[in-house]
Amino acid sequence: MTERDDQIQETSITDVFASFEGDVPASGRRSSPARLVRRYLPAVFAFVAVLLVWEGLTRLFGVESFVLSKPSEILNSFSETLGVIWGAGMRTLFEAAGGFVIGTSLAVLTSLAAAHWVGFRQGVLPLAIVLNATPIAALAPIFNNWFGLTNPFSKMAVVAVVVYFPVMINTTRGLLEVDPAELELMRSLAASPSEVTRRIRIPRALPYFFSSLKVASVLSLIAAIISEYFGGPQDVLGQYIVNRAQLFQFPDAWAAILVASILGVVFYLLILAAERWLMPWHVSFRTND
C-alpha cells in the first residue's frame, strides 16, 4: 500500500490554512484592508480567546507554573529572554533547514529515478515504505556517534532522514499518477520519455511535492529539536528547553517552545508562498474571472 498516514495528516494541516484562504471571491485576491480584517478576524479572535481562557483557568484554580505556566508568565519570559532564545532558535533552524534541503534533494533524485526505472521502483519503494514506519528520531544517538555530538550535521542527518520519506513517497506518486490520456497524447507526438517527464510528469507531481514539503517543514523542526534532546551544544532550542525545565524555569521553557512554533509557522508559510509562485495554475488558487 502506498496510501500513507502523512497524506491524511497533511490534508488536515492544509485544510486549516485553506480555511484562512478559502471562500473568498476572486476579487478578494487583491485584498482590501477591510477584506483582510474580515478574513483573519475569526482566527485572531479564537487565538486570543484561547489565551484568555488559559490565563483565566490557571489563575482561577491556582495551577502551579511547573504544571502549566500562565500565558502572561510565558510572554514575560519571552520578552526577557528573547535575545537568548532567538539565537538558539536560529541555530536550531539552521539544523532543520540544512536537513530539510538535504533530505528533499535526495528524495527528489530518488523519485525521478523511481519514475524512470520500473525495476528501481519495484525494488526501492516497498523498502522505503517499511523504513518509513521506523521511528526515525530514535536514530539520533547513533547519528550523534557517527558525526560527532557537537557537529550540527548529526542533527541535520536526523532531519534529512525524517524529511526524506514523505517527500520521496509523495513525489514518486505524483510523477506516476498521470492522466493516461496525456501519456497517449505525448505518444501520438512521438515524445521521448524525458520529454514526458519534463512536460507532463513534473508539473503533475508539483502538487504532491508541495503537499509533502508542507508536512516536511513541520517535521524538520520537530526532528531537529528532538535530536537536540539527545545531547550536543547547549545553545540550541532543544537543550535550552531541557535545561530550563530541569531548573524548574517552566515559563522559560514555554517561551522557547513559542519560538519553535513561530519558526515552524514561518517555515510553513514560506513553502505555501513558493507553491503559489511555482504553480499559480493549480485549481486551489484559481480565480473565477
Binding site: D179, A181, E182, E184, L185, M186, S188, L189, A190, A191, E195, R199, I200, P203, M279, W281, H282, V283
Partner: peptide, 30 residues
C-alpha cells in the same frame, strides 16, 4: 514518429499549467 497525424480525443486533454497558446505550441516544442 514522422508526425504524419494529429489526434483529438474525446476529452480535450489540455495542460492546465500552460496558456492556450502554449498548449498549441506543445507539439511544436517537442
Amino acid at each position: 514518429l514522422d508526425r504524419d497525424y494529429g489526434i483529438v480525443f474525446q476529452s480535450a486533454t489540455l495542460l492546465d499549467w500552460r496558456s492556450v497558446q502554449k498548449n498549441v505550441e506543445l507539439p511544436l516544442e517537442i
